[in-house]
């Protein structure tokens, strides 16, 4: 039993899984270096990310699962749920030991895996809904900030590319401090030092006008006789309000 330490990347985690199998050991825990506590340093086994090994693990998973497994564990990884790394390890071990058990929802690791998958799936769906673009003044560019509870950016780009093929846009994850930029050709991940971010100035009068029209619309379609705060909050929890135009009445 050992603590495995990796660089926090998906490939890093897959390399840990490879090494653990190589050592025929079951990790006590798998932790990302950024969360590594000082006390653990001494006993932790640090794994250097190896993309070739990571690829081998993915192929091994897909071979056993009719190509369903790699996507599932990627989603689990991005869900950032507590214990995601160890659940992924056990799921892979179960796949290796028992074959394709992904349809066996009675298996605790499979059940847990789909719970995490569901969690991030819901967050992805919410972000499809709750992204609010603002048109940047003097530029043909739309900008949105989100604060999702899972690391959804790698999973939501395609949806917005299909939808806004003819406009440039940036979606910025304020929690993880990175974004996606679509330049009419492809999507690129950008970091806080990207020069484009400095060009995002105050919005225009025209932008304010459309935002106000949206707020007015939102308020007009409410039916007061049917007020149902509990239901409202269940669908639109408060933690998302910060970047929702319609929840900022002006």
């Amino acid at each position: 039993m050992a603590t495995y330490c990796y660089d926090g990347s998906f490939e890093g985690l897959l390399t840990v899984i490879f090494r653990a199998f190589e050592h025929r050991s079951i990790p006590e825990q798998i932790i990302s270096t950024e969360y590594k506590q000082l006390g653990l340093l001494a006993s932790a086994f640090t794994v250097n990310t190896d993309e070739l090994l990571a690829e081998r693990v993915l192929r091994g998973i897909d071979k056993r699962t009719d190509n369903r497994g790699s996507r599932l564990i990627y989603h689990m990884f991005l869900s950032e749920q507590d214990g995601a790394e160890m659940t992924i390890f056990h799921l892979v071990k179960n796949l290796v030991d028992k074959g394709d058990i992904l349809s066996n929802f009675g298996n605790p690791y499979v059940a847990k895996a789909y719970q995490m998958d569901k969690m991030i799936g819901r967050e992805v769906h919410r972000m499809h809904a709750f992204v609010r673009f603002q048109k940047v003044a003097d530029a043909d560019m739309y900008f949105a900030i989100i604060n999702p509870s899972c690391n959804v950016l790698p999973l939501i780009g395609e949806h917005f590319v299909k939808r806004y093929a003819d406009q440039k846009w940036i979606i910025w994850d304020a929690v993880r401090n990175y974004g996606i930029y679509y330049d009419l050709q492809r999507e690129i991940f950008i970091e806080p030092d990207h020069p484009l971010l400095k060009t995002l100035v105050e919005s225009s009068k025209q932008e304010d006008c459309y935002q106000q029209l949206w707020v007015d619309y939102f308020n007009s379609v409410n039916i007061r006789e049917r007020k149902n705060t509990k239901l409202h909050l269940r669908h639109m929890p408060k933690r998302y309000w910060r970047y929702l135009t319609e929840k900022h009445s002006r």
């Binding site: 809904a129 709750f130 939102f218 379609v221 409410n222 039916i223 007061r224 049917r226 007020k227 149902n228 705060t229 509990k230 239901l231 409202h232 269940r234 669908h235 639109m236 929702l244 319609e246």
Partner: peptide, 8 residues
């Protein structure tokens, strides 16, 4: 995309 205060 959004939900009104009546939950719709």
């Amino acid at each position: 995309h959004s939900y009104t205060e009546d939950g719709r």
